[in-house]
Design a protein around this nucleic acid. Structure first.
Lengths: 135, 135
DNA sequence: CTAAGTGCAAATCATTTGCAACCAG
DNA sequence: CTGGTTGCAAATGATTTGCACTTAG
């Protein structure tokens, strides 16, 4: 390499700090800003893409139209609260054997996986079935 | 209701025809066009959102920046080929018991789930490790 | 009449890309 | 020098929204 990747490094540090499990580009961008590591959004974007390409990070897709990134070392599946949008990490729910079975039956090669559970997190569940749905 | 939802109905019909497992809005839009049911893109968008809100359809998020929709009755998990982008349906990979375990350990309520497997489909796998990666 | 559904055009939002300036090796 | 990085600005692409119009009920 010919130059230090300041943004990438800072990003990995932020993500490793573990205040969150998966980060949107905006979250990463503002997190860096708060660290005094202000950077351009596009740099965050490119650094994230690069980390993903290199296998250091992975993209996490939820259905809220924003791509998130998480460090590969911290992989876990996710429980997405449809009320407060919190993303709770949960251990892998699929047994290894299952993957092999799918590869056998489909002939495909599975390289990665991601499980998204949708529902209500502990707090929102406790808050009761309705929240601010009064018309 | 005060009026027939022509687009919604046509969309459900198209999706139920089962030529595909999950549809992007564009795919639905053009599929309707080919059926002689030409409609505006925004109508497709709104109909899809409505179906999702009513629970008839569900959003499927991959990390390719496009939201897909599938009929709820046709639920299955997916194997996404990172080379040809085909989406292969696979049976649910998680045992019911696992969901209960997560609900117990996290206190959350799980309402839905989706598993995305990433890798190479049968054909792409057979095509060998490299394809058009010549620089 | 009345509200739901539709079409068209314009606005938004989240990315992506082009390009010139920069800098550690 | 040299190639990887960065910032700024502008381009994309996909999704959303405002508004007027239409029509089943």
């Amino acid at each position: 390499m010919a130059r230090k990747a300041r943004v990438s490094a800072a990003m990995v540090a932020v993500m490793a700090a573990g205040e969150r499990h998966a980060w949107t580009l905006e979250e990463l961008h503002s997190a860096l800003g708060e660290q005094g590591q202000a950077t351009d959004f596009s740099s965050v974007f490119r650094a994230a893409e690069k980390l993903a390409a290199e296998g250091q990070a992975r993209k996490v897709a939820l259905d809220d139209g924003r791509t998130r990134f998480e460090l590969v070392g911290a992989h876990h599946d996710h429980l997405y609260c449809t009320r407060c949008h919190e993303l709770v990490p949960v251990p892998c729910l699929i047994e290894r054997e299952r993957f092999a079975a799918v590869e056998r039956s489909t002939g495909a090669a599975i390289l990665d996986h991601h499980v998204i559970l949708r529902g209500l997190c502990r707090d929102c569940r406790a808050a009761g079935p309705e929240s601010g749905a009064a018309p």
